[in-house]
Design a protein around this nucleic acid. Structure first.
Lengths: 147, 147
DNA sequence: TTCTTACATTATAATCGTTATAATTAGTGT
DNA sequence: ACACTAATTATAACGATTATAATGTAAGAA
C-alpha cells in the first residue's frame, strides 16, 4: 500500500517535470513510512546515514517542492518547528498538548461547514484544516500518577 | 461591548495575580478593538506612539501571559509570523491564501467531532481549531481581471 | 513615608528555524 | 561526448522569538 503511494507520488512529480533524485526518493519514502509527522530536521537526521553529504537545505527545498505538488502538508503550531505530513486520504490530527504527539483521526470532510463559510464570507473556499487538542492516554496517566 | 471584554480581561488577569501595567492595558485594548488579527510587530508598531520606550520583548512577554490566562489565541501558518486573536465567543477563521486576510466565521462548536476523536484515539480532548482556506472576494476579482 | 521585595519593562544579545546565494555536481537530450 | 538545465551542497543571511542582565515600578510592612 505504501509502495503504491510512493509510486503515485513519483508519478505526480514526474508529470510536473520534477526530477526524481535519490534524495527526493528517500525523503518521500521516509515520509510515507513515518507515522510521526516529522520535522525537517527529523528527516535530515534520519537520512544522514544514507546521505552523509546531504544538506538541510535539500530537505527544506524538497519539502517545498512536494508541498506545491500537493504531496505533503505543512503543520504549524505556536512553538518550535513545522511538521510535515504526507497527504493520503482525508484525515485530521489529534494533538497532545503535553508531549506533542500527533495522531491521525479519520473523519469525513466538513463540506457543509465549508459551504456555509463560503456563503457567509464571500470567499471561494478551497480546503480546511481541523485540529483537535488534548492529552493523550500516556500523558493523562502520568499526570494522574504525579498528583 | 468591547469595554466589557476589556474589563473582564483585566479582572481575569488580576484574579490570577498578574499586575495591570499601562502596557498590558494598551495591548489588550488594541487587540480587542482590532479586527485584523495582528502580529506581535503590528501591536508593537501601533503602540510605539504612545509608548516610545516599549520593547518588542514586552509585547511578546505579555502575549504569552495573556495566552496562558486564556485571553488570547495564537494563530500560526507556514509562513511569516504568528498572529494573535483576542478570545471572545466561539468562532473560526476563514483565511485568504492570496492576501492573508483573516475573517471571523461564527459557527457552533464541533462537539460531536471532538467526542468521536476522543473515543477513537483515547485522548482527553480539550478544544479544537478549524481554519478554512480559500480566496477572498477582492483577490478573486483581481485574478479574474489579471487573466 | 520609607524600606523591602517581587514583578515588569527595557535594551540587547543569543537562538533557532528557515531561506537565499554561489559554487559544484549530476541528469537529460542532442 | 557536449551542452544545458536543474538539483545539491556548504555556508551565509535573515527574521521571528526568547533569554539575559540591568533598571524601573508597584504594593505591602514597618
Amino acid at each position: 500500500m505504501s509502495e503504491v503511494h510512493l509510486k503515485d507520488a513519483l508519478e505526480t512529480l514526474k508529470s510536473t517535470g520534477v526530477r526524481i533524485t535519490p534524495q527526493r526518493h528517500a525523503i518521500l519514502e521516509f515520509m510515507i513510512h513515518s507515522t510521526a509527522h516529522p520535522t525537517a530536521d527529523d528527516i535530515y537526521r534520519a537520512l544522514e546515514k544514507t546521505f552523509p553529504n546531504m544538506s538541510v537545505a535539500t530537505v527544506y527545498n524538497n519539502l517545498r517542492v512536494f508541498k506545491s505538488a500537493g504531496l505533503v502538508k505543512e503543520l504549524t503550531y505556536g512553538d518550535s518547528s513545522s511538521r510535515f505530513d504526507f497527504v493520503t486520504n482525508d484525515h485530521y490530527h489529534v494533538i497532545c498538548n503535553d508531549c506533542g504527539k500527533i495522531v491521525d483521526f479519520h473523519y469525513p470532510g466538513l463540506d457543509e461547514v465549508e459551504q456555509l463559510a463560503s456563503h457567509v464570507t464571500g470567499f471561494q473556499v478551497d480546503y480546511h484544516r481541523l485540529e483537535i487538542y488534548g492529552t493523550c492516554q500516556q500523558c493523562s496517566g502520568k499526570s494522574a500518577q504525579a498528583q
